[in-house]
Design a binder for these strands. Structure first.
Length: 297
DNA sequence: CTGGTCTCCTGATCGC
DNA sequence: TGCGATCAGGAGACCA
């Protein structure tokens, strides 16, 4: 499932193709995936009213990312945020539309054009999301986008110990639940929460506010390291994730905890344990991540 | 305010 | 071979 590293890698693969491109048109197959910031859902809007929010008639000047959200910024000042949810993808389509299953659930398809010898002058960019946990949110200005992103926690690829400590506060909820909260730290999802806690030797059920400053510092360091490493490896492709060119990522090979329940810990060979938290699979090493050693308060 | 649970949604996989 | 049940989970709604 796409988390910060997958979205970052998608952004990197998309950036050189879309920045500088002109948005000639858009086809909206499912209005429900679009929302307009500060307004009601786009469901009742006329399709033509969605042209400007979807950046038609403007040129894309930048791609940005915060946490699991990616934004396309246009020279009109507008910004469009893409959230991939579970199964979302943004794909560049230089040729004919994909057939079969890959051609289904393409909810929004833009036509872009650019003067570039490496691409046809006109190509499509498709937002596809079978399960529809993702969607598009249109912002009228960069300031609105910044305001929305300021309500999220610091991005996980750059989060410091002090910032993470501030985000965790004195909460007694399990540290893993806190890491999944995007207002605490943005971009950490189920996979990288497990990986980070494993790397920092912290049990997922440890009350967040009971961690010592050095423990939180180490956790922040591991989050940064793991998210950046995974981004460079192209993200974790379990099943659905692909970059803008349809390529899977190889970061699954880096996983030491996620998806390895019952397998030996890479550090101490103890079989990894599993539990469910908030209906999410959680894997940890009962020896390396011992709950009893956490600081009591 | 906080933290837990429910809900959305479809494709892959499993058991019979 | 077919088919129903189960599972995957991000994020916001909802509730105690």
């Amino acid at each position: 499932m796409p988390e910060g590293p997958e979205v970052e890698h998608l952004r990197r693969s998309l950036d050189p193709v879309v920045v500088g491109a002109f948005v000639r048109g858009v086809r909206v197959a499912r209005r429900g995936v679009i929302s307009i910031a500060g307004a009601s859902a786009a469901g009742g809007r006329r399709i033509s009213d969605l042209d400007a929010p979807l950046l038609v008639g403007s040129r894309i000047v930048a791609t940005l990312r915060h946490g699991k959200q990616m934004a396309l910024v246009a020279d009109s000042g507008r910004a469009l945020v893409v959230q991939l949810g579970m199964t979302g993808s943004v794909m560049i389509e230089p040729g004919p539309p994909p057939r079969g299953m890959d051609g289904k659930h393409r909810h929004v398809v833009w036509t872009l054009e650019r003067a570039d010898p490496t691409m046809p002058s006109e190509f499509r960019v498709a937002f596809r999301d079978p399960r529809r946990f993702g969607g598009l949110t249109a912002y009228g200005s960069r300031a609105e986008l910044d305001a929305a992103w300021s309500r999220l926690g610091t991005d996980g690829l750059v989060v410091t110990g002090a910032q993470l400590r501030r985000g965790l506060g004195s909460s007694r909820r399990p540290i893993k639940a806190a890491l999944l909260d995007q207002t605490v730290v943005a971009g950490v999802g189920n996979i990288y929460a497990d990986e980070s806690l494993f790397a920092a030797s912290i049990h997922p059920l440890t009350p967040a506010g009971s961690l010592s400053a050095p423990q939180v510092g180490r956790l922040a360091r591991e989050i940064r390291r793991i998210l950046n490493h995974a981004s460079d490896a192209g993200g974790s492709t379990l099943r659905d994730y692909r970059d803008a060119f349809g390529q899977p990522g190889s970061a699954v090979q880096l996983h030491a905890a996620y998806g390895r329940e019952g397998e030996p810990c890479v550090r101490c060979k103890t079989p990894l344990q599993g539990l469910r938290m908030q209906a999410r699979a959680t894997v940890f090493c009962p020896r390396c991540q011992d709950l009893s050693t956490c600081r009591k308060r």
